[in-house]
Amino acid sequence: MAIKTLLNSMIPSELLEPNWRLLSFIVLLISGIGVLMLYPMSEFHGYVDPFYAPTVLVVPIAGLFRLTCYAYRKDYHRHVFNHPNACGINIRGDSMTRDYSGETKFFRVENLHRYFLYAGILILPFFYYDFYISLIYSGSFVLRLGSLLLLLNAVALTLWAASCHALRHLIGGRTDCYGCAFAGSQRKSLFNWQSILNGHHEFFAWFSLLTIIFVDLYLRGLAAGMPIDLNLSKLL
């Protein structure tokens, strides 16, 4: 009985509902990871695939960083759980007959977002390192299109992490009186600056997902022999 109440307080009805969106999402996650395992591709001509930087083992951490991110939370609560699907009153797909627990039961784990942020920040330098490696892999400095794409991916990921709400809280969201604090005005301007980035957090979140998948596909294309790389150094 006690276990039942415990489970009841832990497992949200969102996960128990017959919901094709949720089931298909789980299938998608599992098969996605499966494919990454099926086609390991750590390096090609000096390009390190972003999914493997520094190792494919960090993919779950990055995944959890994404799943607990406030931007993606909005999207999967809307589009996977339909709570609600849209703001329009007639098209929202939520209803009074559906049970709802929000972020109270199991989804309280989303509150650990800041730890995944810390882990994410630790991983970030590897993307820049891989960009550097791609420049010098032939022994001398060569700038290729792929390197630029790696850089683009690294920058997108950096912007996404830098615009994070948890980071915003750490920088100054918790401070109510900058006037009373050490270096208050400098910290407030840092906070304001980060707030501007934060305003585009959703864009950065999706853009970085787009680039990481695009770069991955691009490198796999290269590996399969598609003639899509350019040596920019030669053009210049």
Binding site: R21, S24, L28, S31, V35, H79, A86, G88, I91, L217
Partner: peptide, 22 residues
């Protein structure tokens, strides 16, 4: 795109790539 089609597109898009790969 109407909101209710967003997730299906997301799913079909990624799944197409995965299934092709498999």
């Amino acid at each position: 795109i109407p909101p209710k089609y967003r997730y299906p597109l997301f799913f079909i898009g990624l799944m197409t790539m995965i299934i092709t790969a498999i």
